[in-house]
Design a protein around this nucleic acid. Sequence first.
DNA 1: GCCAACGTTGGC
DNA 2: GCCAACGTTGGC
Length: 154
Amino acid sequence: MQFWLMKSEPEDVSIDDLAAAPGQTVPWTGVRNYQARNFMRDAMRIGDLAFFYHSGCAEPGIAGICEVCSEPYPDATQFVAVDPYFDPKSSPDKPRWWLRDVRFVGKSRYIPLAELRAHPELAGMRLLARGNRLSITPVTPEEWTFITQLMERQ
DNA sequence: GCCAACGTTGGC
DNA sequence: GCCAACGTTGGC
């Protein structure tokens, strides 16, 4: 099994939105970066786990855990002309952007970005790399274990 | 709202 | 294929 971190703006889709969604599942729409797309389309496997990260908000951080629960399929929003994620250069017969569904696993104690940065054990984390903007990043098993233990602390 | 950092575009 | 300009991300 592999581990990931997936960013979402809570004003768009928060961990609570995911928990409240039908089947507690949402399609991970809106990824428009090739590296992130490749992670999602090619590298992920059903059953992989991911930290659900809130970005673009007052206090960014990890809010919970979700699970990859579908094979990749084209992101429908790329074909909708009025959609903010519309991509005029993509076409249904040769889709450019692919996504997977993720399912709610659990909400955790909120772990702010500042707290993640404070732990030397996480210094090498892709999320924390200088200038990182990727909305989907791999998480090592060591990082995963460390952070899930952090979740258990007060 | 600012700005650093990055990815993409497009002219050449 | 280079690289400047531009747009976007995302923390602060």
